[in-house]
Design a protein around this nucleic acid. Sequence first.
DNA 1: TGTTAACACGAAACCGTTTTCGAAAGTGTT
DNA 2: AACACTTTCGAAAACGGTTTCGTGTTAACA
Lengths: 340, 340
Amino acid sequence: MIKKKIKLKDIAKELEVSISTVSKALKNSEEISRDTKEKIQAFARLYNYKPNNIAVSLKNKRTKNIGVIIPDIVHHFFTTVIRGVENYALEKGYNVIVCLSDESFDKEVINMEMLANGSIDGFIMSLSAGTEKKKDFNHLKEVTDQGIPLVLFDRVTNEIDCDKVVIDDIQGAYVATKKLIDEGRKRIVLLTTQDFFSVSLNRNLGYQKALKDAGVKVKDDFILKLPFMDVDDKAISEFLERTKPDAILSTNEIFGIFAMRVLQKKGFEIPNDISIIGFTDGLLAQHANPAITSVAQHGEKMGEMAAKMLIDRVENEEDEEPNYQTKIIAPTLIERESTF
Amino acid sequence: MIKKKIKLKDIAKELEVSISTVSKALKNSEEISRDTKEKIQAFARLYNYKPNNIAVSLKNKRTKNIGVIIPDIVHHFFTTVIRGVENYALEKGYNVIVCLSDESFDKEVINMEMLANGSIDGFIMSLSAGTEKKKDFNHLKEVTDQGIPLVLFDRVTNEIDCDKVVIDDIQGAYVATKKLIDEGRKRIVLLTTQDFFSVSLNRNLGYQKALKDAGVKVKDDFILKLPFMDVDDKAISEFLERTKPDAILSTNEIFGIFAMRVLQKKGFEIPNDISIIGFTDGLLAQHANPAITSVAQHGEKMGEMAAKMLIDRVENEEDEEPNYQTKIIAPTLIERESTF
DNA sequence: TGTTAACACGAAACCGTTTTCGAAAGTGTT
DNA sequence: AACACTTTCGAAAACGGTTTCGTGTTAACA
């Protein structure tokens, strides 16, 4: 026995008024008399009337949905961003449609196209590895050309004119490297990914800048660029044996964890023998033994800011000159047990 | 210069045919002549016509969206479930709307109500702690009464008649405990949460059953029930000092990690002195040092199955007698370095 | 040449709302 | 009694599609 949902027409028929009257009464319109409004509202409450979202969306051309496209959800950073977006969205009465590009350009395009046909009021996204590698941003261009608001976060591109929120990766790496230098470390190596990731590139720059500012020469063979997936214990192990570092900066969380494991198995003590700092202050860094000093990216805050920027755009679409902004969040070095 | 999206009416006007003709032509209807169809399709392709999802949804009463409500997204298990759901959904042309209940009953209700008014074709969800504690399932009842398909996973209730997918928690805990017994461990303690979590309860049962089957007496003070959030190092530490275990079974990932840290700080060697097995085969267990033997819950598979069950229901709504199923996934013990 | 059937297309209803506009009824003023 | 306002409500269009059904045209056939 399925209880069908009640609609305006049903209320109208039952109370012998018109649909328009019901609609207005439920919005407490001044046009409708006190009596009628009370009668209608009471009836609606009794039968638990809720307007159909789809019909409202079609009429208002507002879905109250925002689309979030991220490369990977099994990743603490993106997960915290979603939480931030969700928090703000819920507060503003928006739903969050999450799509995963799986680091693939094609999936990113498919997902965008699926959502761009009316399903959402705006996008929040971080570029997939495939897209960063291919440098093809036509799908983003099409979306913005249609007037759909877009906010890019973390992995962004300046090929596209839109709102952005990023952390200051150069600064983050700089501070981390400086911390290691100040500790007296002399052989500071960098574990990073290939260059097509905008974030890795910037972190690399920050690392080199800190070294230069301290009068330390940057050695190219102190930098290991690993593929971003399928991390290889062996590659790390060989690199560490060759470079014999006394400190490691990793541009992500996982490489640092791997390095620490390799070192611990070889009998090194962290941080006595070698200091380690990683990026992305995630669960792994927090719960490792010793806990790893990390550059926090404030994902949740990023998500909230992105959501705020997006919803502001969505709700004030009239302003003709966009005046796009890029918010830069300052990273924070969280000192734990893997450094002094 | 915003490029407005083209609609049926525009194509109709341009090609001097009716809207219905365009609609049919684009669906390759037999009613329309070859010539007209080709002309219309070519035009549509040229101008990149895509039907408006909202309008189609309103007409068809199908949104091609599925709502997923989970307690927490910053949690590896749920995150893998979402990935599984996403995979299957994308394949079938569905979008996934993710809502977070934040372990709160109220948020769970709000989210359900937001989505239940036409935004989605069905729900996939795992109960929040608040709901499990309160044992109030009226919001679920209302949804199913309306004929909206619902699939519960992991944290389920038998108060509600619907499809479910769970893992055999009793079995998982049984196998894990047996493994410890077979290793020769005599003082096997259990780290778990309060009883209102259905999963914890079952894991506790499995633990006790394995002990009994091996002729070991279950001691109540060998079981520590911690609040599910804000884990307390001190409580764990005191418990371990009091019980002096030679093996630990943790009903989740994090308690096991905490216990290992505490023990390592006290100088114990894992697994030489003490073996550890945890539930939820997440990143923490995989990357801990030593890596922790875990009972894998196969979240991605669960997500895929839940999505499959839901979409099957959605697309075959005619069958009058529901005949709800509960799929039980067998857990797997993944042996790592924290046991012999 | 008249009848019929196939073919190709269009008009209109519909999905469930919102909103504009017009109009009936009531009120008050002279 | 005539007029001008209010107040209160309903008809209808609109959002952008899908689908049913009717109809004009043409070809085929007796």
